[in-house]
Nucleic acid binder design. Structure first.
Length: 877
DNA sequence: ATAGGGTTAG
């Protein structure tokens, strides 16, 4: 029964008064129309739902005796329009009236029970069917199968099916569909074969069901076979069959075939377009999806709810604010303005575009109809836009209104640190039984890692029930962040053993872990190989991670190889490459890459300029550094942050222009942070400015009382000036505050084994040889006229001893060992956790001449390539 | 319809 526009007028003008008139002539046409209104789908909202139910009740209660046919008709209409509860009520009415339900009625009610997942009612009906003898009826049998399959009664459904004397295609299809909806895809496919073996011809619905199974399993080959069958059976022009074909091809990644089906269709409906658009999105063809949406509009097809949801989500991903607003207008015109899913999607889109007022407007208009989903959407919207306070307020308000947070809410709210303590949220998570949820667990892992508490993160990780790839990746990234290569590799091996397939995020984390100074170079290469095998090496995030890994592990050429091979690059790729060259002190290449970016009009960000300015700092190019700061502000309209000002302080400080550095500190629009003072302090030590050094140290110590660097630098300043009294005071302060100086370590890798050295270390089995090698070197150094620069010794001892202290710095021990253990002529690679001291820097330059060796030292800041008595850092570091 | 993991700097 379709509703004609004229009927709308009737419905709108309908009053109880008019109903009374119609009641008099029950069999007259208008009353049939009222039936139609009462059972009409909810989307046809020109009559309100409450009014429809008034009409329905009226019809039920006040109309004279009805016969089975009428009941049957009304029941079917209710069922068809998803009005299951009304259908049940009607059936109860029938039962009360003493009429004996026939097969068709029982069949309809069984279908309703299936939809309501009410097996208990279904079983009672089953008994009634048996008693009344209807169970023999094919349509009743089929409905019984359907009911059991929809109410978790797979076995019972199968039993009914097996015992059916007569079966139709519909019976077969119901069973196949039942298996499919219970995730038993293999059984569904088996049954499909069996059905055909027994000579049953599938109908269009059978094909739809089977294609759905094949789509879920991504079985394209079988899928195209079924496509052939569809054609043989002459169903290739049926719209809903084609829709399933399109869906199957797109879910299996065969975009071309899906488009071919689409192009050949004589009639397309909204589902067709939706399948294509949503399928394009699944396959990452976002722009094509936008284009098809456009064409759908041109084709004059009415947009439906799922289409809007899909396209609005696309807008969210692309921050397409203008388009999102246009879509909101379309939604209004389409009469879908009350749809909660669309509204939520719009809220998210506005949040992603940082239009929080618009998002909140939609949210507040939903008052009374909000659910945990809409609350969570709003809360995470604020969190992603830095509105932590709003988010926290909403979270509390939500609890006050009696809406319980779910796993989505908890994983979102864990970003609201430190407004919520992790401990509190963690406790709530445990109480509400969400601790096993992968998404909540992953957020907890991340939160603990960011607090440097990897131990707690590990505990959370072990509790997660079914660890998905995101959870594994989060744990890996935790180890990467603390530089624990071994821990990361262990986790990677574990996930590989469990058959989990890594994605680009997983691999970029493990590669990042291999960029740690202590990792063996070979390890990173192995994971590079893994990523090639998985064909992920060209993904954006992974190739950036590779560039960084190779650069940090000393292999700038491999880093450049990866960079050159990239088919697609983003800002991060370029930044990674520039920063690699900057760390290696290759100023020429830094400029080259930067100019490349500029010529191509590529986007640059604050990080690009931090790299550029600090590259200038290390090359002693003060004017150039200043130039880049100006380019950033004037040409690229990037607001300088505290970090940029700190870089400028560093630029002037290292060049010895301490006054200018102080000018920057005094002139910047923020309070100077720890980095600025630390830069100034370091320069004060080199340029021996005690007064300014004292000031910088005091500021730095006030900002970071537990950071040993400030104390050590200050004590170095006093030591350089020979002021041992003041120096002792600093040491005492460190003891009082329990601040520990970070010991200096150096590492060298020989034959895939890493050896570590402390200053004055005697633990190496070859110590004797190492120290005699050092002595030999020292003799040759004095022959060359080298004088130790004892300013770098921190103890109050005789000059002679000071020299001894210097010659036993950890990097020298490592180099001596390298000279002994590595074949002549090979490059010696050293890692150091602290900065190289000035004296060692001089000595290593000389050693590179004496021993005719290339020596590469990676200290806490950068690379030093020593060759022929020179260093790549140009003595700025 | 809502959520969690990754790559760049000092």
């Amino acid at each position: 029964m379709t509703l004609k526009p004229a009927l709308r007028t009737l419905a709108q003008s309908y009053t109880n008064q008019t109903l009374k008139q119609y009641q008099l002539s029950y069999h007259s046409k208008p009353l049939c129309h009222l039936h139609a209104i009462a059972v009409s789908p909810k989307s046809e909202s020109f009559v309100s739902e409450s009014r429809k139910s008034v009409i329905a009740h009226h019809l039920l209660d006040k109309t004279p005796q009805r016969d089975l046919l009428e009941y049957n008709h009304l029941l079917f209409e209710y069922f068809r329009n998803d009005r299951n509860n009304e259908a049940i009520n009607l059936f109860v009415g029938l039962w009360r009236s003493g009429l004996q339900a026939n097969g068709s009625i029982l069949s309809s009610v069984l279908k309703v029970c299936g939809c309501l997942s009410d097996q208990v009612a279904g079983r009672q009906l089953h008994c009634q069917c048996v008693k009344s003898g209807c169970a023999e009826d094919v349509s009743v049998g089929t409905s019984l199968v359907d009911m059991y399959m929809k109410t978790e009664g797979v076995r019972d459904g199968r039993k009914v099916f097996d015992e059916m004397g007569d079966r139709t295609v519909v019976s077969w299809t119901s069973l196949i569909a039942g298996y499919a909806r219970n995730g038993l895809n293999d059984q569904a496919l088996e049954l499909f074969s069996e059905m055909r073996l027994q000579g049953n011809k599938p109908n269009p619905h059978t094909f739809v069901t089977v294609l759905g199974v094949l789509a879920a399993k991504g079985m394209v080959e079988k899928g195209s076979q079924v496509h052939t069958m569809v054609i043989k059976n002459g169903f290739e022009s049926i719209t809903f069959v084609c829709n399933s074909l399109i869906n199957m091809y797109l879910k299996s990644g065969i975009v071309k075939d899906a488009k071919a089906v689409f192009d050949c269709m004589p009639n397309r409906d909204a589902v067709t377009w939706n399948s294509l658009i949503a399928g394009y999105v699944i396959n990452g063809l976002d722009l094509e999806a936008f284009e098809m949406f456009n064409q759908m509009g041109l084709a004059g097809v009415k947009f439906t709810q799922p289409i809007f949801v899909t396209v609005i989500k696309l807008c969210a991903n692309y921050k397409e604010l203008v388009f999102a607003r246009q879509l909101q207008c379309c939604v209004l015109k389409s009469g879908l303005a009350f749809d909660r899913n669309i509204k939520t999607a719009l809220m998210v889109a506005y949040s992603k575009c940082s239009e929080m007022d618009d998002a909140y407007k939609i949210f507040s208009m939903m008052q009374g109809f909000q659910s945990v989903v809409t609350w969570t959407a709003m809360i995470s919207g604020y969190l992603q836009n830095g509105g932590t306070e709003h988010a926290v307020k909403l979270f509390c308000q939500m609890s006050r209104e009696g809406i319980k947070p779910n796993d989505f809410t908890y994983s979102a709210i864990l970003m609201a640190r430190p407004s919520f303590s992790i401990g509190q949220v963690h406790a709530q998570v445990i109480k509400t039984n969400y601790e096993k949820s992968p998404s909540v667990g992953t957020s907890l892992i991340d939160a603990y890692v960011k607090m440097q508490n990897v131990h707690e993160a590990e505990k959370v990780f072990h509790i997660i029930d079914e660890k998905d790839i995101v959870a594994w990746s989060a744990m890996l990234s935790g180890y990467a962040q603390i530089g624990d290569t071994e821990g990361a590799v262990k986790i990677y091996l574990q996930l590989a053993r469990e058959g989990v397939i890594p994605n680009e995020f997983t691999l970029s984390s493990i590669i990042n872990a291999c960029a740690a100074p202590t990792a063996a170079v070979e390890q990173g290469k192995q994971f590079h190989a893994c990523s090639i095998k998985l064909r992920l090496n060209n993904t954006l995030c992974l190739s950036s991670a590779l560039v960084t890994m190779y650069a940090k592990r000393g292999n700038i050429d491999s880093a450049n190889e990866v960079f050159k091979r990239q088919g697609e690059r983003d800002l991060v790729s370029w930044n990674s490459m520039i920063s690699g060259y900057a760390q290696h002190g290759n100023g020429k290449k830094v400029l080259e890459v930067f100019e490349d970016m500029r010529r191509q009009n590529l986007e640059m960000d604050g990080i690009t300029f931090i790299i550029m300015i600090s590259a200038c700092t290390h090359a002693g190019l003060v004017d150039e550094g200043k130039k880049y700061f100006n380019i950033m502000v004037q040409d690229y309209h990037i607001d300088p942050t505290t970090e940029h000002y700190s870089c400028m302080v560093d630029l002037y400080s290292r060049a010895g222009n301490l006054e200018k550095a102080m000018d920057i500190i005094n002139g910047m629009p923020f309070e100077a942070g720890a980095n600025a003072w630390r830069a100034l302090l370091g320069a004060c030590r080199i340029h021996r400015n005690i007064e300014l050094g004292k000031l910088a140290a005091e500021k730095l110590i006030a900002l970071q009382p537990q950071d040993s660097a400030a104390y050590v630098l200050l004590s170095n300043i006093y030591a350089t000036a020979g002021n041992w009294q003041e120096r002792a005071k600093v040491r005492k302060l460190m003891d009082e505050r329990n601040v520990k100086k970070q010991p200096g370590y150096s590492w060298i890798e020989v034959k895939n084994k890493t050896y570590s050295f402390l200053a004055g270390d005697l633990s190496h089995p070859m110590s004797d040889l190492i120290y005699s090698k050092l002595e030999e070197l020292n003799n040759r150094l004095s022959d060359m006229g080298y004088q130790p620069d004892t300013n770098y010794v921190l103890h109050d001892v005789e000059e002679e001893h000071k020299a001894a202290f210097l010659s036993q710095h950890s990097e020298r021990l490592a180099i001596a060992f390298g000279l002994i253990a590595k074949p002549p002529g090979s490059t010696i690679q050293i890692l150091k956790n602290l900065r190289v001291c000035g004296d060692c820097h001089t000595v290593i330059k000389l050693i590179s001449v004496i021993e005719a060796r290339d020596i590469v030292v990676r200290d806490s800041n950068r690379f030093h390539h020593f060759k022929d008595g020179l260093c790549s850092c140009g003595d700025y570091w």
